[in-house]
């Protein structure tokens, strides 16, 4: 956790790039709110959900790159010779990522408030947003750790970046799913779990308490977290047994 928070280079990009993309899209796509059926008059409020998830996707890279470095420098091998349990290492690693996820979620809430976004679910909704941000970061951080443990290569983790972008862009990121006009895109966005993560955050900002969106969002986030941590634990035990 200390390492994660001591490295500004790992903390700044997940804050700056999504904010920049938010600014660009909120300005450029404002006219979309004129479409019949668009759920809000503020595209900024609509788009504010994206950086929450985009920042968490960056966590995948951070977690993976840190762990890959430990593997490449032999630090993990040295740890395997000590009495420290692998699960403790993984827990430490992921708690750093979750802390970063919380900082990011707080930052984007602040950005939204400063820009005049009204949070429909109120203060309690913001607290739920923080909790959701933590679960999503944990899930994607676990995914990054799993990839690092399997490949042992920082370059391979960096290579994930375009793939993460595909998941982000082929989703309901810029348009509500019911308004996506191209059929195949609509299908892809419906299959893409990232759509449900975005829609969960979005519901708290623009709708209020939407049970279905929240349930779907938390279920997807929890499933990613459970699966990725299980996979990471398995991969770690295999690597430390070598």
């Amino acid at each position: 956790m200390t390492r994660t928070l001591r490295q500004p280079a790992s903390a700044i990009p997940p804050l700056v790039f999504p904010t920049m993309l938010l600014a660009v899209n909120a300005g450029g796509l404002k006219a979309s709110t004129l479409l019949p059926g668009f759920p809000t008059h503020s595209f900024l409020a609509f788009a504010l959900a994206v950086p929450f998830i985009q920042g968490a996707l960056f966590s995948t890279m951070n977690a993976g790159t840190d762990l890959a470095r430990d593997i490449q420098t032999g630090f993990l091998t040295r740890l395997s010779l000590t009495s420290l349990r692998g699960s403790a290492l993984l827990a430490g690693q992921l708690s750093g990522i979750v802390a970063l996820g919380l900082v990011q979620a707080l930052f984007y809430i602040a950005v939204g408030l400063i820009a005049g976004v009204h949070f429909a679910a109120g203060f309690a909704g913001m607290l739920v947003l923080l909790g959701f941000g933590a679960v999503v970061s944990l899930g994607f951080g676990g995914l990054g750790s799993f990839m690092a443990l399997r490949t042992g290569s920082g370059e391979a983790i960096q290579g994930l970046f375009p793939l993460l972008f595909v998941f982000l862009f082929i989703s309901s990121m810029n348009t509500p799913r019911n308004l996506i006009g191209v059929h195949w895109f609509k299908v892809a966005a419906t299959i893409n779990p990232v759509s449900y993560l975005i829609e969960c955050v979005r519901s708290l900002i623009i709708t209020g308490w939407d049970g279905q969106a929240l349930a779907l969002g938390f279920a997807v986030a929890a499933a990613i977290a459970v699966a990725s941590i299980a996979l990471s634990t398995w991969a770690l035990s295999r690597r430390m047994a070598r």
Binding site: L29, A31, S32, L34, L35, E155, G159, P162, F165, V166, F169, I170, M173, N174, T175, L179, I180, G181, V182, W184, F185, A189
Partner: peptide
């Protein structure tokens, strides 16, 4: 690793923008 990103990124952006935002063309004044 040098060739594919510069080839695939534009294709991806085109797919994401033209596919995901096609309804924008129905905005009044477009």
């Amino acid at each position: 690793s040098l060739f594919f990103p510069s080839l695939l990124f534009p294709l991806f952006f085109f797919t994401a923008f033209a596919g995901g935002l096609s309804q924008v063309s129905h905005v009044p004044g477009f």
